[in-house]
């Protein structure tokens, strides 16, 4: 499967990366080269093979339903949460107005 300029533009849009026409033109052969190369996986017989789910056998742990049990993963830290915000506004994150 090879991609054309339109497809690359669509992927860039899905990925929210603004691209110029020049970027697109450069990306098409690059991505096609990589995709053609990874497509050799298609020749592997995977009949009856399950996709990997956990690389090292391990089961999902569950945590107790306790608020702020570990301060590192708890709330009540608004200043820390907003400390790096480009546009903090009265305790909120500001973003350009969204029209729904």
């Amino acid at each position: 499967m090879s991609v054309d300029t339109a497809t690359v533009a669509k992927i860039a849009s899905l990925a929210r990366i603004k691209v110029t026409e020049a970027d697109l033109t450069a990306m098409v052969p690059e991505l096609n080269g990589i995709l053609a190369w990874v497509e050799q996986l298609g020749e592997v017989d995977v009949t009856g093979v399950e996709p990997m789910t956990a690389v090292i056998p391990n089961t999902q742990r569950l945590r107790d339903d306790v608020v702020n049990a570990d301060p590192l993963t708890g709330g009540d830290i608004r200043d820390a949460v907003l400390a790096n915000a480009p546009a903090p506004e009265h305790g909120f994150f500001g973003v350009p107005k969204v029209i729904e």
Partner: peptide
């Protein structure tokens, strides 16, 4: 209050 019940996660 806004963003008070927000963890780093």
């Amino acid at each position: 209050e806004p963003n008070t019940q927000v963890s780093l996660v």
